[in-house]
Every structure is written in structure tokens, then in C-alpha cells.
Amino acid sequence: MRAWLLSDAPASRRQARLGRLYAGWLTFRGNTLAMVGLAILAALVLCAAAAPWIAPQDPYAQDLAMRLKPIGTPGHLLGTDSLGRDILSRLIWGSRTTLYIVTLVALIAPVVGLLVGTVAGYAGGVWDAVLMRITDIFLAFPRLVLALAFVAALGAGIENAVLAISLTAWPPYARMARAETLTIRNSDFISAIRLQGAGPVRIITQHIWPLCLSSLIVRVTLDMAGIILAAAGLGFLGLGAQPPSPEWGAMISEGRRFILDHWWVATVPGLAIFTVSLAFNLLGDGLRDVLDPKSGGSK
């Protein structure tokens, strides 16, 4: 199997593609820190998927007699919050919300940025001027303030928080994609495909995107931490996920009232955010080694 995957002369397109994926995986596997990041994220996905079965308690069940119990209380491994809800269970259910936000933002912002950036970079002229000025306008707004205004206008909720974060997150991707497009646009291999009669849509989607994509993916994973924090920030301000739904930022926000006497209520979700952010950063670093075209890709 291994020999078939790493064959010097693949017999079919499928074998060539699988072999390339496998070679990339081998490079990635050599990076211990990236594997740690991947393992944490895999655990997060498992947690989210299996939340109903692995959560020891109902995340919404209140028990005022058991409120603010410390870490290690029997039945409440990570303690309870101000309404006596089990923090571990809320953390596990909250991973769903976190993943949901992260996935949606990761799908919206880079795609919009890539589209705007590559079209502006390749078309040039008026298109470039108009699209980049729009990007500048979005860049000029302070991120959290724009998100706040947006949520205030549309109402609080996870979907609107996602939309607000995406709206403020795409301009850097557009800038980056445009800069890459400008360096690619006049290269000989683009000239060559133009000479074969390819139109601008084909050139942008088939020839420019693959080259922008790797740096974009790396950038997205590195930004993921910031996105989780922005979502947590909105939650903290009461503009993201609404109580009683378990969202990590909202949990910190609730816990801040007791932070001096009952530190674990705010600290535990904080640690969760920290761990996942770190995992995304580690993963991003590892992906850069695998995907960076300048390193020649997988040997």
C-alpha cells in the first residue's frame, strides 16, 4: 500500500492524487507540535459530536443548593457555576457552539476575501480601485466596534455574531489575495495559459486560486484563535450566544462576578478557549510547512 502510494510513476490520476496527499501527510506527521494541535482539535470535534453521551450532566439543569462548588466536587469534576450548573457539561456542549462559529466564519470570510482580492488583482484598473476602496473602508472600522454595531442593528444571537465577525474578518484576506495575485498575474505560466485561449474566469479559479489558497489556509488557521476570541468577546458583552445556552465567552462573562472568590467559574472556560486557540495556531504552523509552495510542496 505504502509502495503503491509513494510510487515514482503512478499509473492513474487517482493514484497520483492519493500519493500526493499521503506524502503531504508524512511531512505533516513529522511536525510534533502540529500533530498536538491536530489531536486537540480532533478531540474537540469528538466532544462536540458526542456531547449528549459524554456530558455527565444536563448543561441546563440548575441546582441552587449546589451553586459555586469548587473543582473536584463529587459529580461536578470542574465545579458548578452561579446557578449550580455543571461546568464540565456546559464546556462540552459549548464546544458545539464554538465549532459552529469557527466553521461558519472560516467558510465565509476567506472565500469573500479570496474572491474580492483575486478579481481586483487580476482585473486591475477600475475594478481594482473600487474593490480595494471598499476593502479599505471595512479595514478602517475598528473590528469589535463594527461587529457591535452590526449585532446591535440585527439583534443578538450566534448567527448575527458570525455574520458580524465575518464582515470584519474578510478585508485582510482580500488584501493578501490581491498582493499574491499581482505577483502571479504577470508570470510566464499565466501568459502561457492565456496563449492557450483561457478566459479570465478559468485563469482566476484554476490558476490563481491554487497559489493563493495555501497561504490563505495557513492564515485562516492562525486567525482562528482571534475569531474564537472575538466570538467569546461578543458573548462576554452579551451580544453573541444568549443565556442560558452554553458558550465559552458567555460563561466567562457570567463567571466574572465571582472571579475573586470562585475563580474556576471564569477560568475553566478561559482555559478551554486558550487550548483551542493554541491548537489552531500549532496546526497553522504545521500546515504552512506542508502547503507553502515556496518550500516546493511535498517532496
Binding site: 497520483a16 505560466f189 502561457a192 496563449l195 492557450q196 490558476h207 497559489l211 509552495p293 510542496g297
Partner: peptide
């Protein structure tokens, strides 16, 4: 058709030989 001067710049770095030729 044209053949370019620098073969290091005239082939798309992320496209295999198969992809280059079959797309053309």
C-alpha cells in the same frame, strides 16, 4: 503558440504535467 525563455517560470508550480497538458 509560444515557448517561453525560462522553464522554471513558465510552468504552474502546483499543476502536474498531466494537468498542464490535459487542460491545454
Amino acid at each position: 503558440q509560444m515557448v517561453f525563455q525560462d522553464p522554471y517560470a513558465s510552468l504552474h508550480p502546483r499543476h502536474s504535467v498531466d494537468r498542464v497538458l490535459s487542460e491545454t
